[in-house]
Design a binder for these strands. Structure first.
Length: 738
RNA sequence: GUCCGGUUAGCUCAGCUGGUAGAGCGCUACAUUGACAUUGUAGAGGUCACAGGUUCAAGUCCUGUAUCGGACACCA
C-alpha cells in the first residue's frame, strides 16, 4: 500500500485558526521589532527614503474614554493605509495620541468628587481640582491606549502625544501669542453662548438645537403685537423693530418714541426700522433683547442701541425685573405671564408651538446668550499672507481666515473625500462668525494673558509683580486645531515636521468636519503656510443592522472588544471595511463579523494546503509553466493591480472585497481544487511549476490581505518556511509587483 | 428657508468618465468527511422610485414629480 506522504509542516496548522492565541503576542512582536517607527524601517532598509513619506495623525480619542465601534472603524481604515504604504516602501508614520477633552473630563471628575465628598469645584479650588484631574487622567489613559493596540494599530508609540503635555502646551502658547500679535485674536464684549449649568461659554458648533414644545405668546406692546417664547427676557425691551418697507407701519418713523404700558409699568419705546424684521413673520413687529440674543445684539450694534442684562450668569432675574428679581427664569415665566394676563397684555397663546432650544451638546444645560468679555478669533479680518506653500495662495496676498480656509480646499491643496463634503464645508465657512475661544473651566490650556490696572499683556510667563493671569482656558478645539503640527514638533522646525508635514491623510468621521477638520485647516494654513493634510477621508457612522444609531437606550450597541474576543481582530476589522464606502454610514451586525471569522479560517486552511503541497519542492530548479499556470499568474497580477489601485484611491471597501473574492472564490475554489491532481500526480515538471504557482499565489495573497487582516496573515507568515519569504516579518515585506 | 444625499435581488449595499445589471448575507436543490469545527456546485429572485428628454444606445447624462434622510441657517 502506498503511504500518503505527510510532509513536515508546523503542527499549528492542524487545528483551526484561533485568533486569541496569537494576537497579543504578535502585537508585542511587531512593537518590539521597532518597525512601527519609520526611523527603524529606514535603518533596516525596508523603506526607501527617496520615496514620498506617508503620515497620518490619529484623531486622538478622549483620554478617559473607552473604545467604541467608531474608533474601531477609524483605526481599521488608518491601519490599512499605514500598513499598505509601509509595504510599498514609503517612510510611514502614524502618530498616536489622546485628547484631554477638557469640558467632558472636568465635569466627569467634578461629578465623581461631588458624589464622594459632596464638594463642588469652588470648595476644593483650582489647583486641587487640576491635580485630581491629572490623577484621574493618568489612571484611565491606559484603558484607551490598550484598546487601541487590540485593534492591531501599527502606531509609533515612541511619538505618543497628549493634548495637555508640555510640548503641545508650548505649541498652543505660541499659536495664541502669534495670532494675538497679528490682530487675529482679540478680546471683546460680544454675544456668546453661555451655559448657566456649566458656567462657561460654548462655541457655536457645540450648541445643539433641540426641538421642544414651548408656548408662543402674543403680547400687546402699545399699538403693536409682538410674539415671544421667552417672556422672562422681555423686561428691558424698549426698542420696537419693523422692516423699513412694511406698508402697515409706514406711519411710524425710525427713531420715533412712543409710550407703552409694559410688564412693570409704562416705558418709552423707540421705533427702529431694520431689515432683520421679517414682515411675513407674525405681525412683522418685534421687540429686542440685545443682551440675551445674538440676532438682537447685531441689530443693536447697527443702530448703537442700549443693552442691559436681564438675567445673571446663573439664570436668575436681575433687579430690572422688579418684583420678579431674584427668581430663576424657569420658575418666573409662568408668574410673568400670569401678571401680564391680569394686565390685559396677553392677546393669544399658541400652546402647541414647537421651538428649537439651544442646548450645550457637551452634556450641559440650556444655552443663555449673554454679552460677555471674551477672547475671539476674528475670521473676517484682512491680513497679508506670510510664507505659503498652498496652491493658488502667494506670500503677500490679502487674505482673511475665511478666505484662506476656502482657498486651501478650492485650489485642491486639500481634497475632501467624498467630494460632496466640500460643499458642506464651504457652506459652514460662509456662515461662520468670530470664534469664541475662551472657556470658564479650569482644565485646559490657560490663556496667556495678564492683567494689571486695566492693562493687558499677552505672553507665556508672568510679566512681574501684580500681574494676574486670565483665569480662563482655551476651547479644546483650539489646541486640537494644531494637532498635525504640534505632534510633529511645531513650533520647532524639527526633522519630523519637515519630513511629515503636511500629513498625507486625515481620516475621521464626517460629524467632526467642522469642529476639527476646518480648524486644523485654519491653524495650519495661517501659522505655517502649509495645509495640515493633503487628503481628508471622512468615514460614516457605524450603525446597527437596521441602520439605527447605536445607543445605550436602544440596547443595540456592538462592542468592538466583545467582537474581538469572539471572532478576532481581523474579522472585526474586515467587517468595518467591506461595504463601507467613504462618507456612508455602515450597518454592522454580529453575523457579518462572524462571516469574516470564517474567512480568516479559510485563509488558514488555504495556507495549510499550499504549504503542504510545496513542502517537497525543489526551488533550485527553474519552473516550466503551462498555459494555465501562466494564466493563473496573470490573473493574480491583475488582482494585485486592482487592489492596489483601489487602495490608492481610498476605496478600501472595493479593495477588501476584491481581495476577499479572489482568495476565496478564485484561489481556494478553483486553483487549489485543480491543483490537487497535479500535486499528487506523476508529472514532475508540471508539479514543480504548479508548486511555484501556488507559492506565488499564497505569498501574494498574504501580502494583499495583510493590511486588512494583519494577525492571521502574520501568524501564517511566521510559521511558513523561510525560503518563501523576502522579510522575516510580513508587516515590512515588499508589496507585490503591480 | 438654503444646500446635499438616497430610492438597484427578500435584507445590506456596489456599479468611476453611458454599451441591455453585480457582491455579501439569506433562500432552494444536489454533492462532499475533504486543505476547511464544513465546504463546493447549480439555481430561483430585479419593468435599476415615477414621468419626460438627449443619444444608435441610459441605473449611468438633463428636466420634473414622489418619497426617505442629512447638514446648515432662521425662529420676534
Amino acid at each position: 500500500m502506498e503511504e500518503k506522504q505527510q510532509p513536515n509542516i508546523p503542527e499549528i496548522f492542524l487545528s483551526p485558526y484561533e485568533p486569541k492565541e496569537h494576537e497579543d503576542s504578535l502585537y508585542e512582536m511587531w512593537n518590539d521589532s521597532g518597525f512601527f517607527n519609520p526611523d527603524t524601517c529606514v535603518k533596516a532598509g525596508v523603506v526607501d527614503e527617496s520615496k514620498d513619506p506617508f503620515s497620518i495623525v490619529l484623531p486622538p480619542p478622549n483620554v478617559t474614554g473607552v473604545l467604541h465601534m467608531g474608533h474601531a472603524a477609524m483605526l481599521a481604515v488608518e491601519d490599512i493605509l499605514v500598513r499598505y504604504n509601509r509595504m510599498i516602501g514609503r517612510e510611514t508614520l502614524w502618530i498616536p495620541g489622546t485628547d484631554s477633552a477638557a469640558l467632558a473630563t472636568q465635569s466627569k471628575v467634578e461629578g465623581i468628587i461631588y458624589k464622594k465628598e459632596k464638594k463642588r469645584r469652588h470648595d476644593i479650588g483650582r489647583e486641587e481640582l487640576l491635580a485630581r484631574i491629572d490623577d484621574f487622567v493618568e489612571d484611565s489613559k491606559n484603558t484607551i491606549i490598550n484598546q487601541t493596540k487590540k485593534m492591531g494599530s501599527s502606531l509609533d508609540w515612541s511619538r505618543y502625544a497628549f493634548t495637555m503635555d508640555e510640548k503641545r502646551y508650548d505649541a498652543v502658547m505660541e499659536a495664541f501669542i502669534r495670532m494675538y500679535n497679528d490682530g487675529l485674536i482679540y478680546r471683546g464684549a460680544r454675544s456668546v453662548n453661555w451655559d448657566p449649568a456649566m458656567q462657561t461659554t460654548v462655541s457655536d458648533d457645540e450648541v445643539e438645537y433641540v426641538e421642544t414644545n414651548s408656548p408662543f405668546y402674543y403680547f400687546k406692546y402699545g399699538p403693536f403685537t409682538i410674539g415671544t417664547v421667552r417672556p422672562e427676557t422681555k423686561f428691558g425691551d424698549k426698542y420696537v423693530v419693523m422692516h423699513p418697507d412694511d406698508e402697515r407701519y409706514k406711519e411710524y418713523e425710525h427713531g420715533q418714541t412712543i409710550e407703552v404700558e409694559w410688564i412693570n409699568g409704562p416705558i418709552t419705546a423707540t421705533i427702529i426700522k431694520d431689515e432683520a424684521a421679517d414682515p411675513e413673520m407674525g405681525s412683522g413687529v418685534m421687540t429686542i433683547t440685545p443682551w440675551h440674543s445674538t440676532v438682537d445684539f447685531e441689530i443693536a450694534e447697527r443702530h448703537g442701541l442700549d443693552r442691559e442684562p436681564i438675567i445673571d450668569e446663573r439664570g436668575i432675574l436681575l433687579p430690572i425685573a422688579g418684583e420678579f428679581a431674584g427668581q430663576h427664569i424657569k420658575k418666573a415665566r409662568a408668574a410673568i405671564v400670569e401678571k401680564m394676563t391680569e394686565k390685559g397684555l396677553v392677546e393669544k397663546v399658541d400652546e402647541k408651538n414647537i421651538n428649537k432650544v439651544a442646548t450645550n451638546s457637551r452634556g450641559g444645560g440650556t444655552i443663555e446668550p449673554q454679552i460677555k468679555e471674551q477672547w475671539f478669533i476674528n475670521v473676517n479680518k484682512e491680513f497679508s499672507m506670510g510664507h505659503s506653500e498652498i496652491p493658488g495662495i502667494n506670500e503677500g496676498d490679502t487674505m482673511t481666515l475665511k478666505s484662506l480656509m476656502i482657498k486651501a480646499v478650492e485650489n485642491e491643496g486639500i481634497s475632501i473625500l467624498p467630494e460632496r463634503f466640500e460643499r458642506v464645508y464651504y457652506n459652514w465657512i460662509n456662515n461662520l462668525h468670530d470664534w469664541c475661544i475662551s472657556r470658564q473651566i479650569w482644565y485646559g490650556h490657560r490663556i496667556p494673558a495678564w492683567f494689571k490696572d486695566g492693562e493687558v499683556t499677552v505672553q507665556k510667563d508672568s510679566p512681574g509683580d501684580g500681574w494676574e493671569q486670565d483665569p480662563d482656558t482655551l476651547d479644546t478645539w483650539f489646541s486640537s486645531g494644531l494637532w498635525t503640527m504640534s505632534t510633529l514638533g511645531w513650533p520647532e522646525q524639527t526633522p519630523d515636521l519637515k519630513k511629515f508635514h503636511p500629513t498625507s491623510v486625515l481620516e475621521t468621521g464626517y460629524d467632526i468636519l467642522f469642529f476639527w477638520v476646518a480648524r486644523m485647516i485654519l491653524m495650519s494654513t495661517y501659522l505655517t503656510g502649509q495645509a495640515p493634510f493633503k487628503n481628508v477621508y471622512l468615514h460614516g457612522l457605524v450603525r446597527d443592522q437596521k441602520g439605527k444609531k447605536m445607543s445605550k437606550s436602544l440596547g443595540n450597541i456592538i462592542d468592538p472588544l466583545d467582537m474581538i474576543d469572539k471572532f478576532g481582530t481581523d474579522a472585526t476589522r474586515l467587517s468595518l471595511i467591506i461595504g463601507a464606502a467613504p462618507g456612508n454610514d455602515m450597518p454592522l451586525s454580529e453575523d457579518k463579523v462572524r462571516g469574516y471569522k470564517k474567512f480568516a479560517n479559510k485563509i488558514w486552511n488555504i495556507s495549510r494546503f499550499v504549504l503542504t503541497s510545496i513542502a517537497d519542492a525543489d526551488w533550485d530548479t527553474a519552473p516550466t509553466y503551462s498555459e494555465r499556470d501562466q494564466e493563473i499568474l496573470n490573473d493574480l497580477k491583475a488582482t494585485v493591480t486592482e487592489v492596489t489601485k483601489n487602495i490608492e484611491e481610498f476605496n478600501l471597501y472595493l479593495a477588501g472585497e476584491r481581495a476577499y473574492h479572489y482568495v476565496w472564490h478564485e484561489l481556494a475554489d478553483k486553483i487549489l481544487e485543480e491543483s490537487k491532481p497535479i500535486i499528487s500526480g506523476d508529472n514532475a515538471e508540471a508539479k514543480l511549476a504548479r508548486q511555484y504557482v501556488l507559492r506565488e499565489c499564497l505569498v501574494t495573497s498574504l501580502k494583499l490581505l495583510h493590511p486588512f487582516m494583519p494577525f492571521v496573515t502574520e501568524t501564517i507568515w511566521q510559521n511558513a518556511p523561510d525560503e518563501i519569504k523576502d522579510q522575516d516579518i510580513l508587516m515590512v515585506a515588499k508589496w507585490p509587483v503591480h
